[in-house]
């Protein structure tokens, strides 16, 4: 089971706090695609364009930004927790 949590803007968009998927040992890109199918609200365009990560939403696997892992190819295992988090950069 993989858990995907949505925060702030994304949660308000998809109107759900989290989804769970029966997946294991798949790239994060697959997890996101399956999550989008499950929540039935398009949100992938906020994260990925032309196959590349865009800024504005941080994707964490077990608290680590996938920029420091293998980006969209980062592997996700059974039991992992994904967080999708649009940060506030202002002060």
């Amino acid at each position: 089971m993989i858990t995907i949590k949505f925060y702030s803007l994304l949660r308000l968009l998809v109107k759900i706090e989290q989804v769970e998927l029966e997946l294991a040992d798949v790239p994060i890109s697959t997890v996101l695609e399956e999550a989008a199918k499950k929540v039935k609200t398009p949100f992938l365009h906020k994260l990925v364009q032309d196959g590349k990560l865009i800024t504005g939403t941080i994707i964490l696997i077990n608290g680590r930004n996938i920029h420091h892992l293998d980006k969209l190819n980062s592997r996700v295992q059974d039991g992992d927790e994904i967080a999708l988090f649009p940060p506030g950069g202002g002060g």
């Binding site: 990560l53 800024t55 504005g56 941080i58 680590r64 930004n65 920029h67 420091h68 940060p87 950069g89």
Partner: peptide, 9 residues
């Protein structure tokens, strides 16, 4: 940096 690397200003 571990959190925000990749974000733009």
């Amino acid at each position: 940096r571990t959190l925000y690397q990749g974000e733009q200003d």
